[in-house]
Nucleic acid binder design. Structure first.
Lengths: 362, 362
DNA sequence: TGTTAGCACTCCTAACATTTGAGTGCTAAC
DNA sequence: GTTAGCACTCAAATGTTAGGAGTGCTAACA
C-alpha cells in the first residue's frame, strides 16, 4: 500500500479532474483543459509541473510525446479506491428499472443480466448458484417402463432436476414405493455435498433387501442433481463493447465476444474471482486492466450475491478501462439489496419479483 | 426463370472462373487474371468484351470504375444453381467430423453447431425440435407438500419437462394415485397439440369426483410440456464472422453478433425458412444477400433435419456472400446422413436426463 | 519558494498533391 | 470473331505541408 503522503492534496485534485474528464471524453486531457475545468485557480504551467510529477509517480501516462495525459491502471485504481464519490443517498431518485416478475430462477438470472446490460451499456455476466450447496426437499422415483426409472429431485427454491435411470432388473410398484420412502426420509434437507460414501453405507444398512440397488440409485441421484451444466453462466450485452472504440477493433472485439460466446474463459474468471477472499464491505470489487491478464484493455466490476439457502453467485460487468465505475458500482449495490428483498418478500428465491433496479445518468 | 440461351457456354465458363476466383481471394477479379487462369485460350481483350456483356446481364458488377468484377447476387445464384459441382461421391474422403455420442438431445444439438462452426469456419445455428409435436410417454404427479404438486412429463426421446403446480385444496395420496392413472391412460401417446378442449371435456366426464381439478391440472400439464422456451435455438461460431473483412466492420459485425446473441431475429428467420415449402430434393437451401432482407451482406445455407418421432428442426450456416457454398453444402449433406445414423444406432435421440427448473404460478 | 508567462520544440492529424498500377473501353488491324 | 495497343479512370499508397494541441524549460515575479 502506498503511504498516505504519496500524493499532495492538490495532486489528488488534479488527478481527479484528469480521470473524470477522460471518463467523459475518452480523449487525452491536457494542462490547459485542467486549468480551466478545475476550481483550483492555477495556470496551465503549474498544472504541467504537477502532471509531470504525477507521471513520474505512475498515475498517468502520455500516449505520445505531445499529447495530453490519460490515467494509468494505477491511476484508475487510486480513483476507484480513494477519489470516487459514493453518493449512496441519491439512489432513490434514480429512474426505475423494472425486472419483471418471474417464477423461475434461471429466467430471473437471464433477466437480471439483460436489464443490467441495458442500463449500464456494458457487457454483463452472472453465474448461477452452484447446485451442490442447495438442499434437497423431495425425491421421487417412478417407473417409466420395465427397465427405465425416472428420478426427480426437488430442491430449495423449487429447483428441479431429473434423469432417467436405466435398470437391469425391474422393480415392482411396491419396491419403488419403499425406495421412495427410504430416499425421502434420508435425503431431505441434505445437499449434494452431504451425499457421500458414509451416507451411502449407512443407507445400505437400513435398506434391507434393497441394499444392492440403493448405491446405484444414490449415485444416479447425485448425478441427477449436479446435472452436467453445473455453474451455468448467463451473459448479455456482449455487443455493447462495440460502443467503445478502444475495444471494437477486430482483434479485441473478436476475443472478447468469443469469451462471452463460449463462456469457458468466463467460468475460469469467475472462479478466480470467487476464490479471491477479501473482506470487502459490500463484496464489490474492481479489476482494472492487467488485474485480469487475459483482458488487458478492460475493467471488470464484480459483486457477489447471496440469496440465502445456498443460492450464491457472482455478477460481473465488463467495460473499457474508462468505464463509469461510479455508476456501475452504484447499480450493483442497488441490485444486491434488491435481490435481498426478493428473498425476504417471498421466502424462496426464484418465486417472485424484483422491482426497481436503479439507473441513472451522469 | 431465365431461358436456357441467356448465357453462351463461354460466358458460363468465364462467370465460373470469376466466381471461383473471387471466392478464394475476396478481391475483384480482372480480365487479365481470367485470361491466364482459364483453360480457354483467350486474350484479356476478348474476356473484357464478354465481361462487359455479363455485367449488362446483371451477373457481375464493378465495385468502382477501374476495378475488376465481382459476382452479383444473381451471379452467385446462377453459380449455386447451375455451375457448382456436386461431387457427392467424394463425401467419404472428407475429413470426418465427429459428433460424440451423447444421450441428451439438448447437448447433442449444442455439439452439432459447435462442430459445424468449427469445420466450416462460419457462424452456425440449429433450432431444437418443437416439443409440441412430440408424444407423451409418461406423466407423473406427486405431492411435494400440502399445497404444491410436482408434475413431470416424459416424452419420446426421453425429453423431460416439469413444473410445480400450486393447489388450493390438498390431495390425499390416494387421490394422486388415481389422478396419475387417469392421466397416463388418457395422455400416453398424445402430443401437446392433441390436448385440446374436446379432450379435456371427455376426461372430465370420466373423472368422476376429480372433474373439478382435472381441467386445472391438464392445463398445467400442457404448460409444463411447452415450458417457456419453446423452439430454443443454439448457435456457435458467431465470432467467425470476424474472419471475413467484408463483415467485420463495427456496424455489420455488431448487428450480426447481436442477432446471434439474443436470437429473436434468428427465430423469425428460421420460422420463415421452415414455412418456405419447396420440394427441394435434400432440403438444403441457399439464401443469398437480399434473399434475407435483414442480412444483406450475408448468405445463409439451411438444411432441415428430421430424426423421426417428430424431432424436426433446421440447421443454418451463415457466412459472407462469398462463402464456400460447395463445401458447406457437402458438409450439411453429410451431417444429415450422420444424424440419421445416430437415431438408428441408439434407437432414441436423447436417452437420459434433461434438466429443468421448477416453475410456479404467479 | 511557489507560481506564472513566454517560447521553442515535438509530434499527431488532417488535408492536399502525387504517383502507381490494375483494370477498363475503344479502335484498328489481323 | 479475335487481338494488340493505347488512352483513360480511379482507388490506394505515398509524400508533403500546415496547423494545433501539448509539452518542458527558463526566467521573471510575488
Amino acid at each position: 500500500m502506498a503511504e498516505m503522503t504519496e500524493l499532495t492534496e492538490r495532486q489528488e485534485k488534479i488527478l481527479n479532474v484528469i480521470i473524470r474528464n477522460y471518463l467523459e471524453t475518452g480523449e487525452p486531457v491536457g494542462s490547459r483543459t485542467i486549468s480551466k475545468n478545475s476550481d483550483l485557480n492555477l495556470s496551465s504551467a503549474t498544472i504541467r509541473n504537477e502532471m509531470s510529477d504525477l507521471e513520474e509517480l505512475g498515475y498517468i501516462l502520455q500516449p505520445h510525446t505531445s499529447a495530453g495525459r490519460i490515467p494509468s491502471d494505477k491511476g484508475y485504481r487510486f480513483y476507484v479506491d480513494h477519489l470516487m464519490e459514493q453518493k449512496d443517498q441519491e439512489i432513490n431518485e434514480v429512474k426505475e428499472m423494472v425486472v419483471e416478475r418471474t417464477d423461475q430462477m434461471e429466467k430471473m438470472l437471464k433477466q437480471v443480466v439483460k436489464v443490467l446490460a441495458n442500463s449500464t451499456q456494458y457487457a454483463t455476466m452472472i453465474s448461477a448458484p452452484a447446485v451442490r450447496g442447495i438442499r434437497v426437499r423431495f425425491v421421487q422415483l417412478s417407473a417409466v417402463n420395465d427397465h427405465e426409472l425416472l428420478s426427480v429431485v426437488v430442491m430449495d427454491g423449487n429447483v428441479v432436476r431429473n434423469r432417467i435411470i436405466k435398470l437391469e432388473q425391474s422393480l415392482s410398484n411396491e419396491d419403488i414405493l419403499k425406495l421412495n420412502m427410504l430416499l425421502n426420509t434420508n435425503l431431505s434437507g441434505l445437499t449434494v455435498n452431504d451425499i457421500n460414501l458414509a451416507l451411502i453405507q449407512k443407507m445400505r444398512q437400513n435398506a434391507g433387501s434393497y441394499s444392492g440397488i440403493i448405491a446405484e440409485v444414490l449415485e444416479n441421484i447425485a448425478g441427477t442433481i449436479e446435472s452436467d451444466e453445473e455453474r451455468e453462466i448467463y451473459t448479455s450485452g456482449a455487443t455493447n463493447i462495440f460502443k467503445y472504440p478502444e475495444l471494437s477493433d477486430s482483434e479485441k472485439a473478436s476475443h472478447l465476444i468469443s469469451a462471452f460466446e463460449d463462456k469457458g474463459e468466463l467460468k475460469d474468471l469467475i472462479e478466480d474471482i470467487e476464490s479471491d477472499e477479501d473482506g470487502n464491505p459490500n463484496g464489490i470489487k474492481v479489476y482494472i486492466g492487467n488485474d485480469i491478464p487475459s483482458m488487458q484493455d478492460c475493467s471488470v466490476v464484480t459483486a457477489k450475491y447471496d440469496l440465502g439457502d445456498g443460492f450464491k453467485g457472482t455478477i460481473g460487468i465488463l467495460g473499457p478501462k474508462r468505464m463509469d465505475y461510479e455508476n456501475v458500482m452504484r447499480q450493483l449495490k442497488q441490485l444486491k439489496s434488491q435481490l435481498g428483498d426478493i428473498v425476504h418478500s417471498s421466502e424462496l428465491p426464484g418465486t417472485s419479483s424484483v422491482k426497481g433496479i436503479g439507473k441513472k445518468e451522469l
